[in-house]
Nucleic acid binder design. Structure first.
Length: 219
DNA sequence: ATCCCGAGGG
DNA sequence: CCCTCTGGAT
């Protein structure tokens, strides 16, 4: 086992103890609902998403019914989540494509999911891992990327490269829960701006504790 | 690299 | 006023 892989295993174990219950915090009951909620979650808190989705899911029970909505009406319903024009257009486009090309069912594979407007690897990984239980990759959002770098598990900045490193370092069965734990830790402790390194229960593993954010990062 | 975009915190 | 929040498309 490589040195980095050993450190990854140590992080995985520590995260499991610190966040045993970590899971998806978006509210959903079907794969389609999770897809919608995940598209809405871009640059927005999951809590805010959970405030707008109940009314939306009540009005649109199928992809076809969402695709048939007037974009203006949809924009009003999701306004609070930000980026509402882009998101409304993506949702209507994705719902229409699912209705027409996939017989009304959210596709179960990465390649198909990536054809949907507003869906890239992050969103596809969320749906595959959390709705279908068939992860093809690791969810890399702003939290996962930041923590993987701080933890010394990658030096990449490109989310796709971070994902490749994490896939190499962790067994497939841990990919879904790993992302949830990193996100939980990233929100509560290892925040972007002022991480609570002083009270962090994982600090003993961390190469960045006490190291100023930018010092020596460029050579 | 830049744009889309609201809401809440410091 | 600044920044950040489970991104994606151009």
């Amino acid at each position: 086992m490589t040195e980095t892989k050993k450190r990854a295993a140590a992080w995985g174990e520590a995260l499991r103890k610190a966040y045993p219950e970590a899971r998806c915090s978006l509210h959903f009951e079907t794969p389609f609902q999770l897809l919608v909620a995940t598209i809405l979650s871009a640059q927005c808190t999951d809590e805010k998403v959970n405030q707008v989705t109940p009314a939306l899911f009540k009005r649109c029970t199928t992809p076809a019914s969402l695709a048939a909505m007037a974009q203006e009406d949809l924009e009003r319903m999701i306004h609070a989540t930000g980026f509402f024009r882009n998101k409304a257009k993506a949702l209507i486009g994705a719902a229409g494509m699912i209705a027409r090309d996939f017989e009304g069912e959210v596709p179960r594979g990465m390649d198909e999911l990536l054809r949907l407007p507003g869906v890239a690897r992050k969103t596809a990984n969320v749906v595959l891992g959390n709705a279908y239980g068939r992860a093809e990759g690791v969810v890399v959002d702003t939290h996962v990327g930041r923590l993987a770098r701080r933890m010394g598990l990658t030096k990449e900045n490109d989310p796709a490269k971070v994902e490749a490193d994490l896939m190499r370092l962790f067994p497939k069965e841990e990919w879904v829960v790993l992302a949830h734990r990193l996100i939980a830790h990233g929100r509560a402790v290892c925040r972007a701006k002022s991480p609570s390194c002083g009270t962090c229960s994982l600090a003993h593993l961390c190469p960045k504790v006490g190291v100023p954010e930018r010092a020596g990062s460029r050579s």
